[in-house]
Amino acid sequence: NQASVVANQLIPISTHLTLVMMRSEVVTPVGIPAEDIPRLVSMQVNRAVPLGTTLMPDMVKGYA
């Protein structure tokens, strides 16, 4: 099972991601792979992401 990136807190819209905001967890459905966490740092979310939500490629500007 592959770990995905999950929000560690509420991430407001247009926030630049930091390591503190993300954790890796095995979830269904599978989202952005956990090994991409370093790549996600300083990218922006294009919507509010609630605590515990799996980050999907379409939620992060410039990821997909």
Rank of each mutant, 00 (worst) to 15 (best):
H16R: 12
P12I: 04
I11D: 01
V5A: 12
S24K: 09
R47V: 15
A7I: 04
S42G: 15
S24A: 12
A3Y: 10
Y63L: 06
I37P: 02
A3H: 08
V27I: 07
Q9F: 12
M56D: 05
A48E: 15
I37M: 12
R39D: 06
T53V: 15
S42R: 08
T18F: 03
L10S: 15
S24Y: 10
T28R: 04
V27Y: 03
Q2Y: 14
A34N: 06
V26F: 14
V41S: 02
P38E: 09
Y63A: 03
V49E: 03
T15S: 11
L40D: 00
I13N: 12
G31M: 02
L17Q: 00
S42N: 15
M21Q: 04
D58R: 07
R39V: 08
L51C: 10
M59W: 13
I37E: 02
V30A: 10
L55M: 12
P38W: 10
T54S: 04
L55P: 01
M59T: 06
V30D: 12
Q44M: 13
I37T: 08
R39G: 08
G62L: 07
D36K: 09
G52A: 07
T28W: 07
M21E: 03
M43P: 01
Q2H: 11
T18K: 06
V41K: 04
V41C: 05
T18P: 00
E25Q: 12
V26D: 15
Q44H: 12
E35H: 11
E35Y: 10
V26K: 06
T54R: 02
L19H: 12
A3P: 12
R47T: 11
K61V: 15
N1M: 15
V30L: 13
M43D: 04
A48C: 15
T18I: 05
A48N: 15
V60L: 07
T53Q: 10
G52F: 05
I32T: 01
V27H: 04
V27N: 01
P12M: 05
I11L: 08
V49S: 02
V45S: 06
A3W: 07
R39T: 15
S14H: 15
P33H: 09
I13F: 11
T54K: 04
V6A: 02
M22V: 06
A64V: 12
A34V: 10
V26N: 10
T54L: 04
D36V: 07
L51Y: 15
S42F: 13
A34K: 06
P38I: 11
A3G: 13
S24V: 12
L40C: 03
L17P: 03
Y63D: 03
D58Q: 11
P57A: 09
M22W: 03
L40F: 00
P33C: 15
L10Q: 15
R23C: 05
P29F: 04
N1T: 15
P57M: 06
L40Q: 00
T53H: 13
G31F: 02
N8G: 06
G62K: 06
A64T: 15
R23Y: 05
N1E: 15
R23D: 05
S14K: 11
Q44I: 11
K61L: 15
L40V: 05
T53A: 14
K61E: 15
E35W: 09
N46M: 10
V30K: 07
M21P: 03
I13C: 15
P29L: 05
L40M: 06
M43G: 02
D58Y: 11
G52C: 04
Q2E: 15
P12V: 05
V41E: 05
A3F: 07
V26E: 15
S14L: 13
K61P: 11
V5P: 00
P12S: 07
D36G: 05
P50F: 06
T15E: 09
N8T: 11
G62M: 08
L10G: 12
Y63F: 10
P50Q: 10
Q9Y: 14
V41I: 10
G62T: 06
V30R: 05
L40H: 00
D36M: 11
A7G: 02
G52M: 04
N46G: 06
V41A: 04
D36Y: 10
A7Q: 01
V26T: 12
P12N: 07
N46L: 14
V41D: 03
V45L: 09
G52H: 08
N8I: 05
A64F: 06
Y63M: 05
M56P: 01
V27S: 05
A34W: 06
S14V: 04
Q2M: 11
G31E: 01
V26C: 10
A7L: 03
Q2K: 07
L40W: 03
V41P: 01
G52L: 04
V60H: 01
G31W: 03
G52V: 02
A3N: 08
D36F: 11
K61D: 14
M43W: 06
I11Q: 01
L10E: 15
V5W: 00
V60P: 00
I37R: 06
V6P: 01
V30C: 12
Q44L: 07
N46V: 15
M43Q: 08
R47P: 02
G62Q: 07
N46R: 09
S14P: 00
H16F: 13
V6L: 07
M22Q: 00
R47G: 05
G62P: 04
N46K: 09
N1P: 13
L55Y: 00
P33D: 06
P57Y: 06
L55F: 14
P50I: 05
P38D: 13
I11W: 02
P33M: 07
T53N: 10
L10H: 12
S4T: 04
L51A: 14
I32L: 05
Q44A: 15
